[in-house]
């Protein structure tokens, strides 16, 4: 398991985001000003924009990545793509199809050690929703089917990455079985990576990238998602340590009780690996 395949237009990689859209996502996320649904949507939209930015070359966008965002609970019992059209989109298509762009400020280096603020267009591909229940198994089944097709068609690609953001437990069954099926889907470069981020509703201490069950509270659901989250490949352990996160070599791609800071870190670390493999 090396996670070193070069990512190019002829050997692209797949990133799938799953986002819980159940009613409880309307609660405020500790550490932020807004609801869990708004912060999670913002974080994923920002990440899509970052992929667009990285794939932008002088002559346009190069399709190094294919992305999908699956929402679950936007209507009770429903799960499906929340981007326009198909489940999986080449990045060039996403660049041309945000539902809108918003003017925001970003800090850029002034070249002398300082920063300056610059206006930029923040792409928005989907809006936050907090409405129904938590049909996570249905969403994972859609992801499983997409990943199965992907690894068959791209057997030597950088392994797919699935990032699941939720604040509750599945209301349509036990997600462990379908996650285990996904974990068995691999390319010659490694197994599919499963990342689970459990958002908090209260300001209790987050547990980032645990390596043992004993690091978690006695919560059946947390222990279950921890157990089916991927063990971090060594590169990702390195990225986390660069961000001053204290974790063991056997850490898993799981955060319990994530607040805004942990959510942003989690998505950043989860997408760093493939971004570093762009040819």
């Amino acid at each position: 398991m090396v996670y070193e395949a070069e990512i190019s237009r002829t050997n692209p990689s797949l990133i799938l985001f799953l986002i819980d859209q159940s009613r409880s996502m309307s609660h405020k996320l500790p550490g932020g000003e807004r609801s869990k649904a708004q912060e999670a949507s913002d974080a994923i939209n920002r990440q899509i924009g970052d992929f667009v930015l990285r794939c932008t070359k002088s002559d346009g966008i190069r399709d190094y990545f294919y992305l999908g965002v699956i929402g679950y609970g936007y209507v009770t019992g429903k799960a499906g793509s929340i981007l326009k059209g198909d489940l999986i989109h080449p990045i060039s298509e996403l660049a041309g199809t945000p539902i809108r762009t918003e003017k925001r400020k970003m800090k850029v280096s002034d070249g002398t050690g300082g920063d300056i603020d610059v206006d930029y267009d923040f792409g928005v591909w989907f809006d936050p929703v907090a409405n129904g229940d938590t049909p996570m198994c249905k969403a994972l089944s859609l992801a499983r089917d997409a990943i199965k097709d992907w690894v068959e068609e791209h057997p030597s690609s950088y392994p797919p990455i699935l990032i699941n953001i939720t604040d509750g437990q599945a209301t349509d069954g036990n997600p462990e079985d379908v996650i285990k099926e996904i974990q068995e889907m691999k390319t010659s470069d490694g197994d599919t990576l499963i990342w689970n981020c459990h958002l908090s509703s209260n300001p209790s201490t987050p547990v980032s990238f645990p390596s043992e069950e004993s690091e978690l509270p006695n919560d059946k659901y947390a222990i279950s998602l921890f157990g089916v989250s991927s063990i971090l490949p060594s590169q990702y352990v390195g990225y986390a340590r660069e961000m001053q996160i204290d974790l063991k070599d056997s850490a898993r791609a799981y955060v319990f009780n994530a607040q805004l800071e942990q959510l942003v870190e989690f998505i950043d670390i989860g997408t760093r690996g493939p971004q570093g493999q762009m040819q």
């Binding site: 924009g49 930015l53 932008t56 660049a95 762009t101 850029v108 930029y120 267009d121 792409g123």
Partner: peptide, 11 residues
Amino acid sequence: LPWFQKNKAVL
């Protein structure tokens, strides 16, 4: 330039 290229080109 389209919006996404402007975002990058300013850098």
